[in-house]
Design a protein around this nucleic acid. Structure first.
Length: 327
DNA sequence: CCGATTTGACCTGA
DNA sequence: TCAGGTCAAATCGG
C-alpha cells in the first residue's frame, strides 16, 4: 500500500519529537565536524588543502550550532503553544474518530528530514563495486534526468544505532557501464566492527629515508585527511595494499595515520604491494614505543614474503603509528 | 523471523 | 516548479 501523507498534519508531540531529533542530528554533526577539525589542527603533517578544509569545517560547525539553536527556539515556541492551548491528544482523538483514521498510522514526514545542503563529498570511479570496508544499506534508487543509469543511494548501516551520517551514491558511468562512480557524503563516526574490514593502503612519503613509507588506514581522500573522532576506536588489521621498495631485508619503516571513518580513495605510490595481517589493535591500548605485531602474507606484486612478521613500534600521536617491518 | 532491498510517494533546495 | 534526495511500506531472502 502506498502512503498518502497529505491528509494529516503533525501533532504537537510528533512535531516536538521531530524537532528534537533534528536538534540531536545537528549536534551530532557538529561534534563530528569538530572532531575532524581538531585532528586537522593537531596533525603535524597536514597539507595546505587540509588547512583550507579546516576553515570550511569551522563554517559548517558554526552553521550546525546555528541550526540547532533555531530548532530549539522553534521547539520552545511549540511547547509554549501547547501549554497555552488545550491538550493536543483530544484533537488527535477527534481526527482519528473520523474517516481519515485509516491513515492515522502513517506519519507525516513534512519537515521531518532536512536535505543535506552542503557537506564534505568526494568521488571515485572504480571498475567494479568494491568493498570499501563499511557496512552500507541501500535506501533508494532514482532515475536521473538525462542519465542512462539510475543512481543508487546508500546510508551507513549504523545510522540509527550510532548516529553515523555517512552516505554514498553509486551510479554507473555514462560512457562505460562497467565503471561505477561513487560519491561519498560525510564521514563515518561509527565504530565499524566489520566482518570484512576496510583496506588500508601504504603510500610513499617524500621522506628521503628510502625505507620509510606512509601508511594510510583507509584515508578517504587524496589529502591523507586525518580524522579519528575517538582514539579508542579499534584499529582492525586487515588486507592492506602497500608499496614497498624492495631493496629488502632491512627494516622498512611505515608511518601511518589511523582513519576510522574511511571509505577509500587513495593516492598510491607507483609500486604497490599487498599484504595481509590479522588481529585487532586499539589505539588506546598502545603507548609510544610499544611493540605490536601482525602477520603478513605476500602479494602478487612481491613486496613481502609469505608469513613475514611485522613488528611495529607504536608511535601514536593522534592515532598515528609507526611500524617497523623486520624480515 | 529479521535484516536488507525495492519502489513509489513525499519533501526540499535551487 | 522540478530534479533529486529521503522515507517507509511491501517484499525478498537467508
Amino acid at each position: 500500500m502506498k502512503h498518502t501523507l497529505q491528509q494529516s498534519s503533525p501533532t504537537w508531540p510528533e512535531k516536538l519529537s521531530c524537532d528534537r531529533k533534528k536538534a540531536i542530528q545537528e549536534l551530532i554533526q557538529g561534534r563530528e565536524l569538530a572532531n575532524q577539525l581538531r585532528l586537522i589542527l593537531r596533525n603535524p603533517f597536514s597539507h595546505h588543502d587540509e588547512s583550507a578544509a579546516a576553515g570550511d569545517l569551522l563554517v559548517k560547525i558554526l552553521g550546525s550550532f546555528t541550526d540547532t539553536i533555531s530548532i530549539l527556539n522553534r521547539t520552545h515556541e511549540v511547547s509554549a503553544q501547547i501549554q497555552a492551548n488545550s491538550p493536543p491528544s483530544d484533537a488527535r482523538k477527534f481526527e482519528d474518530s473520523d474517516d481519515s483514521s485509516k491513515t492515522s498510522g502513517l506519519k507525516d514526514r513534512r519537515g521531518c528530514y532536512k536535505r543535506r545542503k552542503t557537506s564534505q563529498t568526494w568521488t571515485k570511479t572504480t571498475p567494479a563495486l568494491i568493498d570499501d570496508g563499511h557496512a552500507w544499506r541501500k535506501y533508494g534508487q532514482k532515475v536521473i534526468l538525462n542519465a542512462k543509469h539510475p543512481r543508487n543511494y546508500f546510508r551507513c548501516t549504523h545510522k540509527f544505532d550510532q548516529g553515523c551520517q555517512a552516505t554514498k551514491q553509486v551510479q554507473k558511468t555514462e560512457d562505460d557501464p562497467e565503471m561505477y562512480r561513487t560519491t561519498y557524503h560525510g564521514h563515518h563516526i561509527c565504530r565499524n566492527l566489520l566482518k570484512s574490514p576496510p583496506h588500508f593502503i601504504f603510500d610513499s612519503t617524500p621522506n628521503n629515508d628510502s625505507s620509510s613509507l606512509f601508511l594510510s588506514f583507509g584515508s578517504n581522500n587524496k589529502s591523507h585527511e586525518p580524522f579519528s573522532p575517538n582514539n579508542n576506536f579499534p584499529m582492525t588489521m586487515m588486507k592492506q595494499e602497500c608499496k614497498c621498495k624492495e631493496d629488502d631485508h632491512k627494516p622498512t619503516t611505515l608511518f601511518g595515520q589511523y582513519n576510522q571513518s574511511s571509505s577509500s580513495d587513495y593516492l598510491l605510490s607507483p609500486d604497490l604491494t599487498t599484504f595481509e595481517s590479522s588481529g585487532p589493535m586499539t589505539v588506546s591500548d598502545h603507548d609510544h614505543g610499544d611493540v605490536i605485531s601482525c602477520t603478513a602474507s605476500p602479494n602478487s606484486h612481491g613486496g613481502l614474503d609469505t608469513d613475514d612478521f611485522i613488528v611495529g613500534a607504536v608511535d601514536f600521536d593522534d592515532a598515528c603509528l609507526r611500524i617497523l617491518n623486520f624480515d
